[in-house]
């Protein structure tokens, strides 16, 4: 796909050509991927345009909406605000790595049960964010979940369903841990 030569950093007609691409190795959902990408390719664009894992969504490209949330070493981040090259040694999990249509993750099932989405575009980010929240182990009450899920916008306004879905899974996790 990339047809730039590695020496194209030279001046081109008065406009500087961008720096060359390089090889980046990423571990996504347990699989190794070797990509030839620009040093400023975001993790989001790497996932969507080079690995074709389009479950991770682009809603603003500025870290304002949360649609691109993925888990890096279990921690939720906005993949649009992070460069792919920074994650060579990391364990990246996207929505495709959480569950499949045949084997849904409990959060995915809860989102369906509570109708926690309409258009579905913010949904992968909401679910990854919720998993990140559970990993953080700090949200137990409704108020805490609402606060800590507020980095993920939903223009359809499915917040009531999202809250109920996340709460159901958080509650089941905490009852598991009490046993």
């Amino acid at each position: 796909m990339i047809q730039q030569s590695s020496t194209s950093a030279a001046q081109a007609g008065g406009v500087a050509a961008p720096p060359p691409t390089g090889t980046v190795r990423l571990t996504i959902n347990g699989q190794q991927h070797t990509l030839q990408i620009a040093p400023w390719t975001t993790l989001l664009d790497a996932l969507r345009e080079y690995v074709h894992l389009t479950g991770t969504k682009k809603g603003c490209d500025h870290g304002q909406c949360g649609a691109c949330t993925v888990l890096v070493n279990g921690k939720r981040i906005n993949s649009c605000l992070s460069l792919a090259v920074m994650h060579e040694d990391h364990d990246i999990t996207t929505i495709e790595g959480l569950g499949s249509q045949e084997n849904l993750h409990p959060l995915q099932q809860a989102f369906i049960d509570h109708d926690a989405f309409q258009c579905g575009y913010c949904t992968p980010g909401q679910i990854c964010s919720a998993q990140g929240l559970i990993n953080e182990g700090r949200a137990h009450t409704e108020e805490e979940i609402k606060e800590h899920m507020s980095g993920n916008l939903c223009r359809c306004g499915a917040y009531a369903g999202i809250l109920n879905a996340v709460k159901e899974v958080v509650d089941s996790k905490s009852s598991e841990s009490r046993r």
Partner: peptide, 21 residues
């Protein structure tokens, strides 16, 4: 009835316009 397109949307399998490879 729960959304029949729900499983596709919650797993990232639903493909939107700028996502076709």
């Amino acid at each position: 009835t729960s959304r029949v397109d729900g499983p596709a949307k919650v797993t990232g399998a639903a493909t939107y316009a700028a996502e076709f490879h």
